[in-house]
Design a protein around this nucleic acid. Structure first.
Lengths: 218, 218
DNA sequence: TGCGGGTTCCCCCGCACGGGGGAGGGGCGG
DNA sequence: CCGCCCCTCCCCCGTGCGGGGGAACCCGCA
């Protein structure tokens, strides 16, 4: 709906293998309407690059050291005006395909895809379409996984979950302290670590994540 | 995995409006790797053409007299070595989108898509990928047909809804101001009136209400 | 013509919030 | 036994936020 109009599509490549990054860059940069503006070797770097460079598309490898592609995808999509995430994978039937869709990936790209298919895939997600494996679609159509919208990331401690639940009710720290019969500072500590684990900047973002990932009931 | 390799992708266009057929043919035939080999004005004709011409892709309008696109898609996909079906539609949020996926359509194409997007879409489904609207994916991920949402309260103005949407993304007032290209004070004003209308004490409560009442999409 | 609502912008003020530290006690596993 | 994690509580500091005012512009409608 809003592409092909002047400015090239900007891309950030996130893959731990330099060879793959190089290959992708070669393929994408050879297209006049695509421009690789950055690379990242792991998940956290990918998020940083996405935040800094604000690309249209992030080609994200799933298997990366440290913060993996799935978690990185979540974080990237939480940025303001987030880029589209194109998950790069080796096999089309892996488990994380559905997980990636759940966290909001726009599409998938097989590493063995042809150069044409790769540039097409980038263009496709850039204009806002979703690009899936037919297997994934079938799986989704017939119900995919049950209901629960899983949350990856670092696990929350019981107390943290409790606090997040109350935050997601719209309570202030003082109210939560009263509710849990603990000190205000304690609540502050829990909230702080929840924010850290969720990758949220403030309680509002934490609430957004909580609702979107099903960490709390709607 | 089997395109760009010699023989062009063959396409049959099924639409009851000659104008649309002509437009599609013009766009697709101008690409050297795509070839429109047939046209159909209704569903049964589409099935017949697909059987006779054995194209790689059928561009299928949903609304057609007689046998509609949905039913025709079913029949086409039941042929031996069936073509991919690309459903052509006007609105991305129509009900039959999920139905079409259920019967096995490979993707969707908006009539208002650009020429580039159209040829990309055909190529994409030709190689066996699925091309969906992000809305459809989200809907699938969270398990099928949507639930209604009710919000009573005073109606929000367009601008207020927009601001609330961004607040519900976790954005700060400053980020929203930048996003909407207005002053910070303006955003403050909008947020304040949103809080008032929702009966929320702070933005966090507003987000909670927004998610719970369906004022914003999860 | 005047009124009202929507959108835009401005001031001041108090405060809850989040980041940066640190610290002590209890439980559990190496 | 010691280390580690969880829970608890404490400090300072900067700031984003929300409440309280007000005001201008444009538009549609009476």
């Amino acid at each position: 709906m809003t592409a092909e109009s002047g400015r090239p599509v900007t891309v950030v490549i996130a893959d731990d293998e330099p060879l793959v990054r190089g290959g992708l860059r070669l393929i994408l940069d050879s297209e006049p309407d695509l421009e690789v503006v950055g690379e990242a070797a792991d998940g956290s770097e990918a998020v940083a690059q996405a935040r800094r460079l604000r690309p249209d598309v992030v080609c994200m490898d799933v298997r990366m050291p440290g913060v993996d592609g799935l978690r990185a995808t979540e974080l990237v999509l939480r940025l303001p005006d987030p880029p589209k995430v194109l998950v790069v994978t080796t096999f089309e039937h892996d488990d994380y395909v559905l997980d990636a869709l759940t966290v909001g990936a726009s599409g998938f790209l097989l590493k063995r895809a042809s150069a044409d298919e790769i540039v097409q895939a980038v263009r496709t997600v850039a204009v806002g379409q979703s690009l899936l494996f037919p297997e994934a679609v079938r799986s989704l159509v017939r119900g995919g996984r049950g209901a629960a919208a899983r949350y990856a990331g670092p696990p929350l401690t019981p107390r943290e979950s409790e606090v997040l639940g109350l935050v997601a009710q719209g309570m202030t720290n003082a109210e939560i302290a009263a509710e849990l019969v603990v000190g205000l500072e304690t609540v502050r500590t829990h909230v702080a670590s929840v924010l850290g684990k969720l990758g949220a900047r403030d309680r509002t973002q934490a609430v957004v994540t909580a609702y979107r990932t099903g960490l709390v009931e709607v």
